[in-house]
């Protein structure tokens, strides 16, 4: 299995490995700069986990799901391509999560974590786990949506455009919208950063995770459409 995974990583390209590392390194470097500018770092650092790592992972998944130079050969293998694709997705997500978790040690040790109101009275372990769960839930949501969108539109750029628009709307509008429109609450992706005071933070995190988990099998089913996959690689 290890050999298989190492091949899948190389097939997807080394950039898959470097992108989350670069993002985290960039955030740390920028945090240093902001520290000297006297900016409050907690919220900025947390945004790296909850806002940036998920969309970056989503973009990477969209790329992996729609671009395989040897797709036609893959589709003739006794090992089903939808399983291969899912394995790649799992590798991407686990890698991003691993990098995120390692990076999360830095704000925890330096006491630079930004904690939502609902976690403020919890002990240190619950706080740490809750915060990690928060960005992992958002990451899974973005990954699932990226997978489904890229397979439905059969195009990485289209999927990225949709993800980009969702991200902007989530950052700038959702905090206000959830106040007046309760059914949007399960779609609130960055509550820790833009509305830490909300009373439904825990429920929201679970709902976001659940939506991600529901969409994942949808993407897996779409991966069965070999005709669509072949068409997707020839377009652009």
């Amino acid at each position: 299995m290890f050999t298989r995974i190492s091949y899948e990583l190389r097939v997807m390209g080394r950039r898959i490995i470097w992108i989350p590392i670069t993002l985290v390194a960039g955030f740390i470097a920028f945090a240093f700069l902001l520290h000297f500018l006297g900016v409050n770092l907690e919220r900025f650092i947390s945004s790296g986990f909850e806002m940036f790592l998920p969309i970056v992972t989503g973009f990477v998944v969209a790329t992996s799901a729609t671009q395989d130079p040897a797709l036609e050969i893959q589709l003739t293998m006794p090992r089903k391509y939808h399983n291969t694709s899912l394995l790649r997705l799992v590798v991407i997500v686990l890698w991003s999560i691993a990098i995120g978790l390692i990076a999360a040690i830095i704000p925890t040790v330096t006491h630079l974590t930004f904690v939502p109101d609902q976690l403020k009275n919890s002990n240190a372990a619950v706080k740490f786990l809750g915060l990690q769960f928060s960005w992992i839930a958002t990451t899974l949501w973005f990954v699932s949506v990226a997978l489904v969108a890229s397979l439905l539109t059969r195009n990485r750029s289209a999927s990225s455009a949709i993800l980009g628009a969702i991200w902007i709307v989530e950052v700038l509008f959702m905090a206000h919208l959830v106040e007046t429109t309760s059914w949007l609450q399960p779609l609130f992706l960055f509550p820790t950063i833009v509305a830490p005071q909300i009373t439904f933070w825990t429920v929201n995190r679970l709902e976001v995770l659940l939506i991600g988990l529901i969409l994942l099998p949808v993407g897996w089913l779409l991966l069965h459409n070999t005709e669509g996959l072949l068409k997707g690689t020839s377009e652009e």
């Binding site: 190389r10 097939v11 080394r14 395989d68 130079p69 040897a70 797709l71 036609e72 050969i73 003739t76």
Partner: peptide, 11 residues
């Protein structure tokens, strides 16, 4: 199977 447009993994 050897397809007409043979794609390979470049790396």
């Amino acid at each position: 199977y050897l397809p007409q447009d043979l794609g390979v993994y470049p790396d």
